[in-house]
Design a protein around this nucleic acid. Structure first.
Lengths: 126, 126
DNA sequence: GCCTCATTTAGATATTTGCGAAAATGATGA
DNA sequence: TCATCATTTTCGCAAATATCTAAATGAGGC
């Protein structure tokens, strides 16, 4: 209901050296409270070589689950699982054709991000 | 010892529908074999709201461990641990001043990436 | 209706991760 | 030298993750 003026922290026994700065930063972070978990979810999804490979593979065009599994050298079950994770967050689309299921990238945007981030890594090495 | 010419897959009993395409994609992915784990490492690091908050907090300027802990509402030990992870991968720099240790962003580049990726998320919502 | 086969889902298990508590470090200052 | 205090490290545990095997689903063709 009411917004307390003093921010009470569970670690309040520990000295806080720049209370005002800390309070200000906390307030700013609070504004991003909606976005941050979403962003973290995206990064969690990307933080796995198997899924990165899936994205890069599908950048070449759609593939059935079985062929993705071959690309990954992984069981079909594990592959299907990873595809589902990517699809659940809306980054992949699928298409049924008889018994087969074909997956493809939902958009190019994610790929652009990947490439941008790869560039960052390369710059840092230099 | 010897490199086999034929790539043997552990899932070779499963039908592969587009062998050539799969082989081509595997070859292309093999070229990125150096970069992909690095990229995944970066994303793993970013795939955690605590660490994202640290990066955004330090975007405002350097902070001592203790103050970062206050911003996060986390124990100093846990905070120190997360700071170390970010520092080990070279994204943070630190400075000693007596007993205090101040952390700061190593460069603005990572922040730019964060903002770019946030933009992607926002576009997708629209 | 049944059989086949691609895919998905359901356990089960091993590994990784994030955190707190407590012990260890390392610098300051008496 | 000794006590203090910010930080780091170690340990242990709970939760999440990635993969496998095996069972379930669902579409096609006989």
């Amino acid at each position: 209901m009411t917004t307390p003026k003093v921010i009470v922290s569970p670690v309040c026994e520990v000295t806080c050296f720049e209370q005002e700065k800390v309070a200000r930063i906390k307030a700013e972070l609070a504004q991003e409270e909606q976005q941050l978990p979403r962003l973290a979810e995206l990064y969690k999804l990307l933080g796995n070589t198997t899924r990165l490979k899936i994205l890069l593979a599908l950048a070449q065009g759609e593939l059935c689950v079985c062929d993705v599994a071959h690309v990954l050298n992984l069981t079909v079950a594990a592959t299907s699982h990873q595809l589902k994770l990517l699809r659940d967050q809306g980054w992949l689309a699928m298409r049924n054709d008889g018994k087969m299921v074909y997956y493809r990238l939902q958009s190019e945007a994610l790929l652009q991000v990947l490439k941008g981030d790869l560039r960052l890594l390369e710059e840092r090495l230099a």
